[in-house]
């Protein structure tokens, strides 16, 4: 069994794992690093976005990333989003808009939304839908997620 040492930065912290390089980032995050915010909902096909993390600042499906590829990379998961007790505006907006029902898709959707606002602080509906197109939700119908992103954008604009 070949293993490899991978040094990466996870939520701002230097992290090293020694494991089979073809294991996915999703598996390693959940099982080795106990960061269980990422979920396996579609069987690792990249069809649902519940495993979304930011890789070097860009949203990706962690189920489609091999851990061996992560040397030197920066990974941000949902757990790294809030600073101490302070929720990220996107998290706050999701709560306040009622965009969270069962919550299984929520970490992925929050990360995808954050990535959007990082790049585009004033998105319109079309842009929000496109940014969330890779995050399946079966509970909410997406309406309140879209309004949550608008709300977060407002908050960020007002410097909150």
């Amino acid at each position: 069994m070949t293993t490899m040492q991978v040094n990466m930065i996870v939520n701002g912290r230097s992290t090293t794992v020694v494991t089979e390089p073809s294991r996915t980032l999703l598996e390693v995050l959940r099982e080795d690093l106990r960061l269980t915010g990422v979920k396996d909902a579609c069987g690792g096909e990249g069809e649902c976005g519940a495993c979304t993390v930011l890789l070097n600042g860009l949203p990706v499906n962690s189920c489609l990333v091999m851990i061996g590829q992560m040397e030197g990379c920066e990974i941000e998961t949902i757990e790294g989003l809030s600073k101490g007790d302070q929720p990220d505006p996107v998290q706050k907006a999701f709560i306040e808009e009622g965009a969270v029902q069962c919550g299984y898709c929520t970490p992925g959707a929050v990360m995808a939304s954050k990535a959007l606002l990082d790049k585009n602080p004033d998105p319109d509906d079309e842009e929000i839908r496109a940014a969330l197109a890779g995050n399946l939700c079966r509970c909410t119908g997406y309406s309140k997620m879209i309004s949550a992103v608008h709300r977060a954008a407002e908050e960020l604009k007002n410097g909150n």
């Binding site: 990249g46 976005g49 979304t52 890789l55 860009l58 949203p59 990706v60 499906n61 489609l64 990333v65 995808a112 990535a115 959007l116 496109a130 940014a131 197109a133 890779g134 995050n135």
Partner: peptide, 9 residues
């Protein structure tokens, strides 16, 4: 192609 997550990879 796909969605933002797959387009980034």
């Amino acid at each position: 192609v796909g969605c933002p997550q797959t387009r980034n990879r």
